[in-house]
Amino acid sequence: MRKYLLDLIVSSNERLNNNYILMKLTSQETLPEMRPGQFVEIKVEGAPSTYLRRPISIHFVDKKANELWLLIQIVGDGTKKLAELKSGDTLNVMLPLGNGFGLPEGGQKELLLVGGGVGIAPLLQLGAELKAAGYSPKFLLGARSAKDLLQLDEFGKYGELFMTTEDGSMGEKGFVTNHSVLKNVKFDKIFTCGPTPMMKAVAAYASAENIDCEVSLENTMACGLGACLCCVTDTKEGHKCVCTDGPVFNIKDLKWQN
């Protein structure tokens, strides 16, 4: 897929809670095609400790409104600066990057999308595309507490929602891998994105149950283009770039690191 370097306009930048923003970007031109699971690299201006671009997952593409949605967790100076942007500001964005999720194949019907923390971001677009393709995906979203479960109305548009919280304030108490939906439904494919321990637990479950499983990795990266070789993950075929060979990998190709 062709990559672009675009100056996009912030159409809205909403603070969802203390730690998250939902930023919507638009352009006078039609936004390029983007696949679920791909990401963008954003140039942050005016944050002294932020030198490199910030890789951010594509949360949703609203084709009608010509808007790209980004769900951003405020972690450091770069994302703090992004949280300060207002409607009308411009942002230099390189997109679309990475491979994206693979669509189900060979009669895979029962699809589970498992997200934790900011890792829920790419699952919205994936869910929307799966629904449009005639599937009925299920979402299993985990968080510390109810206030950290974000965008539930949006996810609800595309599939059934299952939730876990560590404090039991919403959904089932515990971790995603303990949720009863895993016992009640025989899934054909699992897509997951979230903290590494969560993804490893999901991958271990999928392997044990012989379920096809794709994970979206978040290694720290510089170029986003496969040039610097900084973001590699160890695979059965050696080191591969998360930015170009990923971020989505099938667990059967990975050698998980500790």
Partner: peptide
């Protein structure tokens, strides 16, 4: 050459450290 294990990069003020190791 497979190069060095991950993590190979650290962002620093106005720069970055890399340890790719000639992959």
């Amino acid at each position: 050459r497979e190069g060095n294990p991950y993590p190979r990069m650290a962002e620093t003020p106005s720069g970055m450290l890399n340890a790719v190791g000639l992959q």
